[in-house]
Amino acid sequence: MNPTPWAQAADTVGAFLVFLGAAICLLGSIGLVKLPEVLSRSHAATKPQALGILLVLVGVALRLRTGIDAGTLALIIFFQLLTGPVASHLVARSAYRTGGVHADLLFDDLDEQLSEEPDMPRSHPRPDPDREDAAPKDGPEDGHTPGGG
């Protein structure tokens, strides 16, 4: 069995893309261990979640080379890209509102805006994240959670 040159090229490029994606996953994990606090770590976590998966699955599609498998892989990539931000946003929001990230920040545009709200006095800079569910929404100034799907 002798594969055509094109098929061989697609195979090798696909294998290389899988390799590259795995390398990006590894770099993201290293970042996850090395970076100092939660919000910085979530930057590093985006890499295996988005770019790593994307490259690996494109590589798989290049090696399988059938239409329906490529469609399924595209669907996997689509949903991964759609649901990843939901989780990372909720984690970042929760980290911002409960954790002590304020001391590490150089400046903070959001803190000023949160403090300007009348129902949130300065002495409680980190309100409960469940506040919006518990209290009635009295003004337009409430956090909006971007959700996918």
Partner: peptide, 23 residues
């Protein structure tokens, strides 16, 4: 707004903390 936030947070450099719909 949602689509922009999803696109921004899929890029490694961007981590969206909050999105104000009103402003």
């Amino acid at each position: 707004l949602t689509a922009t936030a999803v696109a921004v947070s899929n890029v490694p450099g961007g981590s969206v903390i909050e999105l104000r719909r009103a402003t």
